[in-house]
Design a protein around this nucleic acid. Sequence first.
DNA 1: TGTACATCAGTGAACGCGCGTTCACTGATGTAC
DNA 2: TGTACATCAGTGAACGCGCGTTCACTGATGTAC
Lengths: 210, 210
Amino acid sequence: MRPWRSGPSDRRGYHHGNLKEALIEAARRFIAERGIGGFTLVDAARLVGVSPAALYRHFRGREALLEEVAERGFTELAARLARALRGPGTPLERFTRMGEAYLTFAEEEPGYYAAIFEARPVGPDGSPPVQAPRDRDAFGLLVEALRHTFPDGFSGGVDPRFVALEVWALSHGIATLAAAGRLPTGPGLPTKYDLLRAGVVAMVHGARAR
Amino acid sequence: MRPWRSGPSDRRGYHHGNLKEALIEAARRFIAERGIGGFTLVDAARLVGVSPAALYRHFRGREALLEEVAERGFTELAARLARALRGPGTPLERFTRMGEAYLTFAEEEPGYYAAIFEARPVGPDGSPPVQAPRDRDAFGLLVEALRHTFPDGFSGGVDPRFVALEVWALSHGIATLAAAGRLPTGPGLPTKYDLLRAGVVAMVHGARAR
DNA sequence: TGTACATCAGTGAACGCGCGTTCACTGATGTAC
DNA sequence: TGTACATCAGTGAACGCGCGTTCACTGATGTAC
C-alpha cells in the first residue's frame, strides 16, 4: 500500500489537513487485510505518512480508533440495508434483496464488518457500556424491516423478532464462513447468495405455515 | 488460573512428564478466555509451570501448537456430532439433535471452536497447504449425516449438500453470535436452540416441498 | 544388582523486535488590532 | 495590508513492555553390560 492522503490538496507539509479521516480509512484497510488483531497504530500512521504520536491528537488510543471504524461501518451497513429495502418488488423480494445487500457489504467491506463484530465498544470513561447501542439498533432495524415488509404479520402469531434473528444468524454465518474462505464452492454447489435466498424463503415460509 | 499439571504424578521435578498434553490444554483454556489473538506461548508455559523454551521440545512454534489445538478440537467435535446422530428417534429428530450438539460444543469448548475456525493450517514445510483436510472432512461429515438421515433424499432432487451448507451456515452464525454475546435474549425471545431447531425444520421442510 | 553412559526433556539468560503511549518541542494557521 | 500572538496539529526521540525464539547448558531417565 502506498502512502495515502485524502482531501483536495494531496501534498501538505507539516499539517495533514484530514488526518482523522485518513487514519480511519487506513485502519479499515488494514483490518480488512489482517483482521482486528493484526492491526497496529504504527502501521496506520506509517501508511498515512505521519508520526505515530500524531494519532493521539484525534483519538484516545487504539481502542477508540477501532470503535470509530466500527461506528462508521455500522452507519454504512445500515444505509445500504435501508436502500435495498426501499426498492420495488413484492415484500419477499425486497426483504431478500436486503439480505443480499448484507452479504455484499460483508464481502466488499471486510474491514468494516470485522470491526462491527469484533471491536469492543468503549464508554466515555474507557470502560465498556452495559450494552452497545449499535446492537439494539442493528437488531431493531431488522425487525422493523420485517414488520414493514410483512405488515400482516405471520400466521400463528409467530413473532417477527424470531424470524429476524433466524435470518440474521444465517446471514452472519454465511458471511463469516465466506470471509474465512471456508464455504465450499464448486460445480453444482450454491453461491452464498443462493444459500441466503433459499434460507430466507424457507424461514419466512416456515413462519407463515406454522 | 493455577499452575496445572496432568497425569498420575502431580509433582514431578525437572521433567514434567506430560508437557505436550498440558500445553495443548493450557492453550485451549487461554484461547477460550482471550481468543486466538490473545493467546501467548509465554502465558501457556507459565500456566503449566515450565520455561517458555521447553515448548520447543514438542512444537515447532506458536502456529504449530495452535494447529494441534485445532486438530484436537475438530476430532472432539466430530465425535460429538457422530454420537448425537447415532441415537434414537425419527430422522429429523436425530438430525436436529446433531445441530444441538454443535451449538453445545461451541458453547462448552469456545477455545476449540475458535481454534478450528481461526487457526491457519500449516503444512510440514511451514507453508499453508492447498486446502485444509479438515474443511473437507467437516463438510463431508455433515453431508453424510444428511444422506443417512434422509435416505430417500429430498423431493425435486434438491442436493443434500445444499441443505447441509444451509444448516451449517445457520449453526455457525448462531454459535458465533452467541459466543460474542450479541444474540439478543429476553422474555419472549428464543434461545439459540430454539432458533436452530426451527431453522432446521424450515430448511428441511423447504427442501422437501420445493 | 551396580555402574557407565547415551539420550532426552528441561533450564535460564539473552536476543531483537515491534508495539502503544508519553513528552517536550516546533512549525503552521488564523485571528485581533 | 501588516504584524503579534494564541491556538492547533504535527514531530521525533524515548520509554517500558511482552512477545517468540535461540542457545549453550544441565539434570533426570533408562538401557547395556
